[in-house]
Simulated assay, not measured.
Amino acid sequence: MSHSHSHDHHDHSHAPTVSGDNERKVLLSFFLIFTFMIVEVIGGLISGSLALLADAGHMLTDAAALALAYAAFRFGRRAPDSRRTFGYLRFEVIAGFINAITLFAIVAWIIYEAWQRFQEPHAVLAGPMFGVAVAGLLINVLVFWILTRGDSEHVNIRGAALHVLGDLLGSVGAVMAAIVIYYTGWTPIDPILSVVVSLLILRSAWKLLVKSLHILLEGAPGDATPEKIAYHLRNKVPGVADVSHVHVWSITSGRMLATLHVRPAADADIQEVVRAVERELQSQFRIEHATIAPQWDDEPPSCSLSRTPHRAHTHNHGPQEYAR
Results as ranks from 00 to 15, higher is better:
residue 288 E to A: 09
residue 54 A to D: 05
residue 225 T to Y: 09
residue 204 S to Q: 12
residue 42 I to L: 15
residue 35 T to S: 15
residue 147 L to P: 01
residue 69 A to D: 00
residue 187 T to E: 05
residue 147 L to N: 05
residue 92 E to H: 06
residue 247 H to G: 00
residue 48 G to I: 04
residue 60 L to W: 06
residue 4 S to M: 10
residue 6 S to F: 11
residue 44 G to S: 05
residue 302 S to T: 13
residue 260 L to T: 12
residue 286 R to S: 13
residue 205 A to I: 12
residue 107 V to Q: 04
residue 238 P to Q: 11
residue 218 E to Q: 14
residue 194 S to C: 10
residue 201 I to P: 02
residue 317 H to R: 12
residue 128 P to L: 07
residue 283 S to N: 14
residue 71 A to V: 15
residue 217 L to H: 07
residue 189 I to T: 12
residue 323 A to K: 07
residue 30 F to N: 04
residue 299 E to F: 10
residue 246 V to Q: 07
residue 50 L to W: 02
residue 59 M to E: 11
residue 290 A to L: 06
residue 241 A to P: 03
residue 254 G to P: 07
residue 156 N to Q: 07
residue 143 V to F: 03
residue 216 L to Q: 03
residue 234 R to V: 12
residue 33 I to L: 13
residue 97 F to L: 13
residue 312 A to V: 10
residue 18 V to T: 12
residue 69 A to S: 11
residue 77 R to A: 14
residue 37 M to S: 12
residue 54 A to L: 05
residue 9 H to E: 06
residue 177 A to M: 01
residue 278 E to Y: 04
residue 202 L to D: 07
residue 252 T to L: 10
residue 82 S to T: 14
residue 258 A to C: 15
residue 303 C to E: 12
residue 181 I to D: 00
residue 7 H to L: 01
residue 36 F to W: 10
residue 195 V to H: 00
residue 269 D to E: 07
residue 142 L to T: 14
residue 274 V to E: 15
residue 186 W to Q: 04
residue 274 V to F: 09
residue 38 I to K: 01
residue 282 Q to C: 02
residue 196 V to H: 01
residue 181 I to H: 01
residue 285 F to D: 14
residue 237 V to I: 14
residue 163 H to Y: 03
residue 301 P to R: 06
residue 111 I to K: 05
residue 157 I to M: 09
residue 165 L to D: 03
residue 249 W to L: 11
residue 101 I to M: 08
residue 30 F to A: 06
residue 128 P to N: 10
residue 146 I to G: 03
residue 291 T to C: 04
residue 11 D to F: 06
residue 304 S to N: 11
residue 235 N to G: 09
residue 289 H to D: 06
residue 33 I to Q: 11
residue 249 W to T: 15
residue 158 R to G: 01
residue 267 D to V: 05
residue 116 Q to C: 07
residue 157 I to Q: 08
residue 67 A to Q: 09
residue 25 K to M: 02
residue 236 K to P: 01
residue 160 A to F: 04
residue 143 V to M: 00
residue 207 K to W: 01
residue 121 P to M: 09
residue 232 H to S: 15
residue 71 A to Q: 14
residue 131 G to D: 09
